[in-house]
Amino acid sequence: MAEKQIKIVVSGPYAAGKTQFINTVSEIQTVQTEAKTTKTGEKEKKSHTTVAMDFGKIRIDDEHVLYLFGTPGQSRFDFMWDILGKGMVGLIVLVDSTDPSTFHEARRIINFFEARYPSPFVVGCNKQDLEGAWDPEDIRTALDLDEDVKVIPLVALNKDSVKNVLLELLEEIAHHI
């Protein structure tokens, strides 16, 4: 029987924690397409970055597999958004709660997907365990999000925290079946 893929896209600005998020719950070692970071300002944050996408998977049954696709964080790889947006059942947008300079990019990502692939989505406010993290409610306002959008605190290194964000998205998806 051919495997049926159910796709959830994990997006967000550079260094928001997308690859970590997928790694934390994927049953396989995340398949990554990374390259060395070369741009000034990015090198200081991490040495490697996702250039095409990375993905993890969770088997549901003999027929279905849930795929978590992570988008590249750098804007020069935006063309991947279109490819990944097609056919997704839901979107998780991650933000680095400690870095408000990336909130505009997060908003741009939400604007893009909302305008073209309006699937259910939630926002995960990552790095909530770090000093200087913005409150999720303030992030909601900064991203121009309505009260009915779920803006959830997250620590992507913590499995329960990642599961919580995934479950919140699945609950959101349930409203649209």
Partner: peptide, 16 residues
């Protein structure tokens, strides 16, 4: 909102 996959309630429950 649109889902890009024909997800049933039963399948969603399984995923959850």
């Amino acid at each position: 909102k649109k889902l890009g996959f024909n997800l049933t309630k039963g399948l969603l429950k399984k995923i959850v």
